[in-house]
Amino acid sequence: MPRVLAADPVSAGRYLVTVGACNDCHTPGWEEGGQVPEADWLVGSPIGWRGPWGTTYPSNLRLIVQSLSEDAFVQVLRTRKERPPMPWMNVNALSEADARAIYRFIHALGPRGEPMPAAVAPGEKPATPYFDFTPQQMERLPVGTSPGTATQRP
């Protein structure tokens, strides 16, 4: 199976976290150009992602990694199927070596921050700020049709 080659597993994990866009959700302020010091990476966010699945929150990965063994973390990355927007189908495809590298990088960062809010059930309004991902004006698009050329369903 393919894997990232780097000078050491921590460097490989840093690279995977960066190009895998983990910081996009799990690091507050990253959306402002990615200029967040590494010491502040992956502490989670209290801003929810709300959609038909309810509201989910980007976890504090630094606390999660400290509470799991490397083997348990790899098992989570390889098998977990949870609610959006976390792209579990992509994460499940990581090689074991890459999953271990991510663990080692996050573990090396050490614990920091607080746990994030628990998920909120569908239909319940979260008490925190949130992004709304509720689909609007849904149309069925025939395969190979772009949104600009679609016809509305009856």
Rank of each mutant, 00 (worst) to 15 (best):
P58L: 03
H26N: 02
R140G: 12
R14C: 02
W88N: 10
E114W: 03
Q66C: 11
V17S: 14
P84M: 12
A93S: 12
V19K: 11
L63D: 01
A39I: 03
V120D: 11
G20C: 00
M116R: 09
V17A: 15
E114R: 11
V143G: 08
E114V: 11
Q75H: 15
L77T: 06
R153A: 14
V36Q: 04
P142C: 06
M1K: 08
T149C: 07
T55S: 06
A93K: 15
T145K: 14
H107N: 06
R50T: 10
A93Q: 10
V43A: 00
Q35C: 05
D8E: 04
G33P: 12
W30P: 12
L5T: 03
S146N: 14
W53H: 15
T79D: 13
T134G: 06
I47P: 06
V19Y: 07
G113K: 01
N23V: 06
L94Q: 07
A7V: 15
F73G: 02
S146F: 13
V36R: 09
N23I: 09
L141F: 10
R104P: 10
V74S: 04
S59L: 12
P87G: 03
I102S: 09
F133P: 08
I64E: 12
M1G: 11
Y15C: 08
P111R: 07
E31K: 14
R83D: 11
E82K: 08
G123H: 02
F131Q: 15
S146R: 13
A150I: 00
Y130H: 00
R112P: 03
S95N: 09
S11C: 05
N90A: 13
M116E: 03
D98N: 01
A119P: 08
P87L: 05
D98C: 01
S69A: 00
P135W: 07
P46I: 04
K81L: 14
S69Q: 01
P37N: 02
E82Y: 14
V10Q: 15
W53N: 11
M1R: 10
A6F: 03
T145G: 04
V76Y: 08
P115E: 09
E32G: 15
Y15G: 04
Y130K: 00
A97Q: 09
I102C: 06
R112C: 05
E124P: 05
E32F: 13
R14D: 04
P9T: 09
E82D: 15
S59I: 12
G51T: 05
W53A: 10
L109K: 05
